[in-house]
Amino acid sequence: MTAKLKGIVFDMDGVIIESEFTHYSAICEAMGERMNQSYETFLTKCTGGDERFAMGRLAELCEIDYDEQQFQQWSQRKAEAYKRLVSKEAKAMPGAVDLVLSAAEHFPIALATGSRKVDVDAALEVLAGGELKGIFQIIVSSSDVKKPKPHPATYEMAIEGIGLPAENCIAIEDSPSGIASAKQAGLGVLGVSVMHGRDALKEANWCTDSLEKISVVELIRLFQS
């Protein structure tokens, strides 16, 4: 890219926090014993979107009929379960906290996530001792947009919030739908192949298997390559 890097937008789940199993456990608790799909199925078929997508897909796979009232009940139970579980299990992805803290010293940074605001708040409250709470200029969750990832609205709102054009920003993502969202919004994307393999992230501009290998200097180098 020939443009200069001026801002960084981070995804949350699978990039900053190792939380997919926590989400899965909370959903299992919320949906009850009829939710019989494995964690592997959840990862491959139900992640990358928002909570409505994940629960709807799981309900379909489990052949569970539900209406809006049922979904809202699941959603409330899931929020309560996630808050309890993440307070015990919050674990940062390798290299993520250091990169976020370093990035914040050099650039405006944003968080663009498919999680609901209540889940984001619960995670940031405890992750790394709350060290990342308040560090992002803007947090855009699925609660803030009508169309979540893979629609570009999440990233469009994030870069608007840090006051930068897309061509000067890089997104850090771990899922195909997140990559699609960022690229449709015009951002370059660094894929992190932890939850999904490199083949699944082939639409990313660049890819790494760990943020431990990525520094701000390396992000600038990648962006200019």
Rank of each mutant, 00 (worst) to 15 (best):
I220S: 08
F21A: 13
G191P: 12
Q76R: 13
E68V: 07
A3L: 01
G56K: 11
I179R: 02
H196L: 12
I179S: 00
A112I: 01
D174Y: 01
M12H: 08
H106W: 03
L5P: 06
S115W: 07
A180W: 05
N205E: 14
D50G: 09
D13T: 08
E105R: 09
M55R: 11
G14E: 10
Q72V: 02
V194F: 07
V120I: 14
I16H: 03
S87T: 11
Y66K: 04
I109A: 00
G163R: 00
P152L: 01
S115D: 02
S115R: 00
Q184D: 07
K45S: 12
Y82M: 10
W206K: 08
S87W: 13
S115Q: 03
L201T: 10
L164C: 00
I109W: 05
K183Q: 12
K147H: 07
Q69F: 11
E29S: 14
A122W: 10
L5Y: 06
I17N: 09
L99Q: 01
V217G: 11
R221L: 07
P94H: 04
H106A: 09
S143M: 03
D144C: 06
S75M: 13
Q69S: 12
Q69K: 10
G14S: 08
M35L: 15
G7Q: 06
E33Q: 13
I64R: 06
G14H: 07
P148K: 05
M93W: 01
E51W: 08
Q184A: 08
A180E: 12
S225M: 15
D67Q: 07
H151A: 11
E156R: 09
T22P: 09
D13L: 10
Y155Q: 00
R221N: 14
L61A: 09
Q137H: 07
L85Y: 11
V86L: 13
G114K: 01
A26V: 14
F53Y: 14
H23V: 06
P94Q: 13
F21R: 12
G191A: 12
V97S: 08
L99E: 05
E20H: 12
F107C: 03
L101E: 10
A123L: 08
D13Q: 04
V145M: 04
K147Q: 11
V216L: 06
P152E: 04
I8Q: 07
R77K: 12
K45R: 15
K83T: 15
Q73A: 14
V192Y: 02
M12S: 01
N168I: 00
G197C: 12
V194W: 09
R77S: 11
P108C: 05
P152G: 03
F42L: 15
M35Q: 15
E212R: 10
G163D: 00
V100F: 04
F42Q: 13
S210V: 08
A171D: 03
T113P: 00
V15Y: 09
K78V: 06
I17F: 14
S215Q: 11
